[in-house]
Amino acid sequence: MLSEIFDLTAADPKTLQERALKLCEEAGEVAQAVLSATGAPGTAYKGLSVADVREEAVDTIIVAMAVLAQASDSRDFFEAEFERLILQKCQKWQATLAVDP
């Protein structure tokens, strides 16, 4: 899957700036879906469900991965950096959970 994301990113002419702005747009769509799915005031008319939240979350993940791919010099670096950063960030998250009451 990482290889496919790297290849698709390479084939897409968007700049890193355009991709980062697209990521912000996708994050907004996740927020909108969550608000609607959880019945936040003023969002019921959208009629979005938890399935929509999942779909928007995946869109956001794909664009975020494309940002990482575009900021990488090669497919091998992209894959290694993804694994390194995921491990590092998960360890940090785990450490935070361990200190929180």
Rank of each mutant, 00 (worst) to 15 (best):
M1E: 13
M1P: 13
L2Q: 14
L2D: 13
S3P: 05
E4Y: 13
E4K: 15
I5V: 15
F6R: 06
L8N: 15
A10T: 15
A10D: 13
A10W: 06
A11E: 10
D12A: 04
D12L: 05
P13I: 00
P13G: 00
K14N: 12
K14S: 13
K14A: 13
T15A: 01
T15G: 11
T15I: 02
T15F: 00
L16V: 10
L16D: 05
R19G: 03
R19M: 13
R19H: 06
A20S: 13
A20C: 12
L21S: 05
L21Q: 08
L21M: 07
L21R: 09
K22T: 15
K22D: 15
L23E: 05
C24Q: 09
C24V: 09
E25H: 07
A27I: 10
A27P: 01
G28W: 01
G28N: 03
G28F: 02
G28R: 02
G28V: 06
E29S: 04
E29V: 05
V30S: 02
V30E: 01
A31S: 12
A31E: 12
Q32I: 03
Q32E: 11
Q32R: 14
Q32W: 04
A33C: 11
V34W: 01
V34A: 11
V34E: 02
V34Y: 06
L35Y: 03
L35P: 00
S36T: 04
A37G: 07
A37R: 01
A37I: 03
G39H: 06
A40R: 15
P41K: 12
G42T: 08
G42P: 08
T43K: 12
T43F: 15
A44Q: 11
Y45N: 12
Y45T: 11
Y45G: 13
K46P: 10
K46L: 15
K46H: 09
G47K: 06
L48C: 00
S49E: 09
V50Q: 15
V50D: 14
D52Q: 04
D52E: 04
V53R: 06
R54K: 14
E55T: 14
E55H: 13
E55C: 10
E56C: 07
E56P: 09
A57N: 01
A57P: 00
T60P: 04
I61H: 02
I62E: 11
V63W: 03
V63L: 02
V63A: 02
A64Y: 03
A64L: 05
A64T: 06
A64M: 05
A66L: 05
V67M: 02
V67N: 10
L68Q: 09
L68V: 05
L68Y: 00
L68F: 04
L68T: 03
L68M: 10
A69P: 08
Q70L: 15
Q70G: 15
Q70D: 14
S74H: 01
S74V: 01
D76T: 07
D76L: 00
F77L: 09
F77T: 11
F78W: 02
F78K: 03
F78C: 04
E79D: 00
E79T: 09
E79F: 00
F82R: 01
F82M: 01
R84T: 05
L85G: 07
L85Y: 07
I86K: 14
I86V: 15
L87Q: 10
K89E: 10
K89F: 01
K89Q: 11
C90W: 05
C90M: 12
Q91K: 01
Q91D: 04
Q91A: 02
K92Y: 00
W93K: 07
Q94V: 07
T96Q: 09
L97M: 12
P101H: 08
